[in-house]
């Protein structure tokens, strides 16, 4: 039995389906990200788990118990809000202590746990500061400590890092991951930042227009996107025109002049072929997708090239390892290998 189970969870606002029959099973200790563009239903899902929004249908199960009948203040979940939602009239320590007070934890133990948790998030010296006198990153840590100190059944993170600048956000990602590992809290993160979701989570739930597009490990979803939406939302990708031909040796994928063995059972006819820019290489001969370089940009670690190919326009990235890079206007032949492409349903263009 999974620790958390969302069963056909649905929220409808009038005619608008914000969340459409969402199914999700989360194991204890897992770090799950709900990832998608704004309006995809990820925040509504989080709020239904927290109990601030009542589902139109379906239910939320926690350890075999239906949370539906339970008021939000009885669910025992730790939440970190996008705006942090710190109590502005309380110090950092008072903020963190609030949840323990609500649980009638005796003063001595309360103080000990507050101090421990503030130490965990690296804020030992800031117990008596008011939120207004702390930086965004520090406020973020107080919010995290406040949610963690009650040893929540689930830790819900609603875009917790989106108000931080890029550099701080990267540091906090690493820190968040290690704090989550130490505390062992089962965590659900809502974010629109694919890099954040990939860096932090055990599994990603990709959502679009209220529906789940794919649930997978980050590397899995990246390598084998289940739809054009996923392919495009998770990093950059090329969608090439190809086709499957049946041959006596099995199905073969044909993209321009490139022929690759295709996975068995891959249907036949025209296909959308998703290939990551960093997985496309220059072919040594002429047996490949031919095209002309239209633009070349140097980016330090690598070269970025845009190619107008016979299978459609594409982008590729080559490491800056000293090997020659074709100039703009040159004709090139491109190749990629069987494990580097994903077939999407034909016509499933973004």
């Amino acid at each position: 039995m999974p620790y958390i189970a969302l069963e056909r969870l649905t929220k409808r606002y009038g005619d608008h389906l914000a969340v459409d029959a969402l199914d999700l099973a989360v194991e204890k200790g897992e770090f799950i990200s709900l990832l998608g563009p704004s309006g995809c239903g990820k925040t509504t899902t989080l709020q239904m788990i927290a109990g601030f929004v009542e589902p139109t249908g379906g239910r939320v199960m926690l350890d075999g118990v239906d949370l539906g009948a339970m008021k939000p203040n009885r669910r025992g979940l730790g939440i970190v809000f996008q705006s942090y939602a710190l109590f502005p009239h309380m110090t950092a320590a008072e903020n963190v202590a609030f949840g323990l007070e609500m649980r009638d934890v005796p003063r001595a133990e309360r103080e000990k746990r507050v101090a421990e948790t503030l130490a965990l998030v690296g804020l030992s010296g800031f117990a008596d500061r008011y939120p207004k006198r702390m930086s965004g990153g520090q406020q973020q840590r107080v919010a995290l400590a406040r949610a963690l100190v009650i040893k929540p059944a689930i830790l819900l993170l609603d875009e917790p890092l989106s108000n931080l600048d890029a550099k701080l956000r990267e540091e906090m990602q690493i820190e968040l991951r290690s704090i989550q590992r130490i505390s062992g809290a089962t965590t659900i993160l809502v974010t629109h930042d694919q890099a954040e979701a990939m860096a932090l989570s055990d599994r990603i739930v990709l959502m679009n227009k209220g529906r789940v597009e794919q649930i997978a490990r980050p590397d899995e979803a990246y390598a084998r996107p289940a739809s054009a939406f996923v392919a495009n939302f998770l990093g950059k990708t090329n969608l090439l025109n190809g086709a499957i031909e049946s041959t006596p040796q099995g199905p073969v994928l044909v993209v321009g002049g490139l022929r690759l063995p295709a996975p068995a059972g891959a249907g036949s006819g025209p296909q959308s072929v998703a290939v990551r820019p960093e997985r496309i290489a220059f072919a040594s001969g002429t047996a490949g997708v031919s095209g002309r370089v239209t633009m070349r940009v140097f980016q330090g670690l690598h070269w970025l090239l845009q190619v107008d190919s016979e299978a459609g326009p594409l982008t590729l990235v080559r490491p800056n390892d000293g090997s020659p890079v074709p100039a703009e206007g040159e004709t090139v032949a491109l190749t990629f290998s069987t494990q580097d492409f994903a077939l999407l349903p034909a016509g499933d263009a973004p």
Binding site: I79, A85, F98, G99, R103
Partner: peptide, 18 residues
Amino acid sequence: IDARIEHAAVSLGASPMT
């Protein structure tokens, strides 16, 4: 008032009166 500040208190176990 940011309604989420009150939501935060609720999620930490506070009753409506509290």
